[in-house]
Design a protein around this nucleic acid. Structure first.
Lengths: 328, 328
DNA sequence: TTGTAGGCGTTATCAT
DNA sequence: ATGATAACGCCTACAA
């Protein structure tokens, strides 16, 4: 692998000139610049990342810690980051190892900052440690976490959806949430309750069930709701996969959606287009969220501006088939 | 961020001793070792990755290039890699930029090898360039590509599925493939045709349609098949999402699956469990494929064993509801 | 067993 | 505008 010395030798200049051409691109004659460029091409020269980062004070590498893979958000991050001349590397941790290599990568100087993508388990220790490093939370964060965060306003979105369901003349609106202690989950539940309250609906805890983040869990939730005495005529699910499960259960029991019961989900997941009826849902601007997160992180890295901000982006209510009765 | 000098000073030893404790762990007295360890802890010292890699010849960083995010495969890669003391970073490229940063990362010395995960666009130039670097293809590869590859035997799997469909007493077995030139796609089509041939079925090109990798494409494919004169009584789709679309179209047209037509997919994608009837499919051992890929890559990096191998792992036929008539 | 010093490939400072 | 050289943090001969 060619290094800068070989390039300099081939071009007949000093290493400093090569470095200048490749980085600053000023204060060097066109003649020598061309020679350097030719030599670089000839040798397929690429500056060594390790040497470069060792020497430079600023670290232009960003780590993205992913639990669930959100391709749209990653696209947004990539675009923003590349624009600023940064590189990203991804640490995929799934749900197996909540801590990830973030700290290791940070302490070893590999990366200069971290974006946590939809991280669900941000414990106290991680929060404490992360105070010392540039980081932003994209999509999910804990109240006690002081990091800058980018997300939609989950409470507002859930409020709007519930409000919409009420306006379809429904009286018994159920909510299917998550059993864990996640901020986005409690926010959405709060939005649901606040909408009921504002419309002077009473809140029936029998109409609120909690489960996991899955299709099967949706089936279970629907069974619970339909087995109770106060049956719902609308079911708002915290996620589309769950809504898909709910719809499946209702279909199996010959309950028509949307005629008998209307169902809504959240996330505009692809499943919402693959199930019949297509699921009314809330679309999150994942691409923009990624982009905004990256921008925020870079400005934190650059300006040392460590004040945690809350950045809210706009969601979109997507009305599809599961809440509107067709007129064939 | 603390460096090795500060640790040495605090521990009252030389930097060489600190380095020895952290790496070799031999030829150093217990007394000094303990002092070093204490100092490391005290300062939260973590060796600088860039300095370390610059100095060392061997590079323990592996790049995984992802098109589509396959979490199971990533888990497998992670497990194998960590066991060997390597780190991975992921370059997510989606389908937007087929070339990825692989070459850049390799040339800049950031990584010592690459795993291409389900890469579909492996062009001649990439193939040429990649000859010089350790790399393995996981899940998909081109015939002309000399890299080591890990996958299932797609032809065999498709053969078995087709054979199974024939044994359900079906006569007109359609195949929904992909319009691109992908090895896995042509392999599966060949397996389908070979099974027909072995059973002395004639091959009707009207029963072979091609489209995209999506639910909508499945709907289109089913329409085409059902509009032709020689209607199928079984439809084998190259992927589960496509099969889901096919099933949806049939349902909309009051054609019962599996009673009237049986449908099969491929990949054991989660959608195969969320659609009714659940889709009979072929499961790929993604976790194992990832693990095997990582192992292969590490041995290539270590041994400089550049002979391209083909590693086939076993698939599994998953018979579900879309091909078997229930007896209620 | 331990310490000193050289060098990995860059970039940045200081001369020229 | 250009070149020589120090320094980044680490590992590893080599010396003691």
């Amino acid at each position: 692998m060619a290094n800068i010395n070989e390039v300099a030798k081939l071009a007949g200049v000093s290493v400093a000139t090569v470095s200048r051409v490749l980085n600053n691109n000023y204060m060097v004659s066109d003649e020598k610049k061309q020679k350097v460029l030719d030599a670089v091409k000839e040798l397929d020269y690429q500056p060594n990342t390790y040497a470069k980062n060792l020497r430079q004070s600023e670290n232009k590498m960003i780590l993205v810690v992913c639990t669930i893979m959100m391709e749209e958000a990653l696209d947004g991050i990539k675009d923003a980051v590349q624009q600023a001349g940064y590189d990203i590397i991804i640490d995929y941790i799934g749900f197996r190892d909540p801590k990830s290599n973030a700290l290791k990568f940070l302490q070893s100087g590999l990366v200069g900052g971290v974006i946590f993508l939809n991280l669900l388990h941000f414990d106290d220790e991680l929060a404490r440690v992360m105070k010392e490093y540039p980081n932003v939370m994209c999509g999910e964060f804990l109240t006690k976490n002081p990091s800058t965060s980018v997300s939609i306003d989950d409470e507002k979105a859930a409020y709007e959806m519930t409000d919409y369901l009420i306006k379809q003349n429904k009286k018994n609106i159920a909510f299917v949430g998550l059993s864990g202690e996640f901020k986005f989950a409690t926010d959405r539940e709060r939005g649901y309750k606040r909408a009921l309250f504002d419309h002077e609906y009473s809140i029936d805890n029998k109409l609120i069930v909690k489960g996991e983040y899955s299709f099967e869990s949706g089936i279970d939730a629907a069974r619970k709701l339909m087995d109770s005495e106060n049956k719902p005529d609308a079911i708002f699910c915290i996620q589309d996969k769950i809504a898909a499960g709910v719809i499946e259960y209702l279909k199996e029991n010959n309950i028509n959606v949307p005629k008998d019961i209307i169902v809504a989900g959240f996330d505009n997941h692809e499943i919402s287009e693959m199930i019949r009826p297509k699921i009314t849902t809330v679309a999150q601007p994942f691409y923009e969220m990624g982009k905004e997160s990256a921008r925020a992180l870079i400005s934190i890295i650059k300006d040392e501006d460590h004040t945690g901000k809350r950045i809210y982006l706009n969601h979109e209510l997507c009305v599809k088939e599961s809440t509107e009765i067709k007129n064939d």
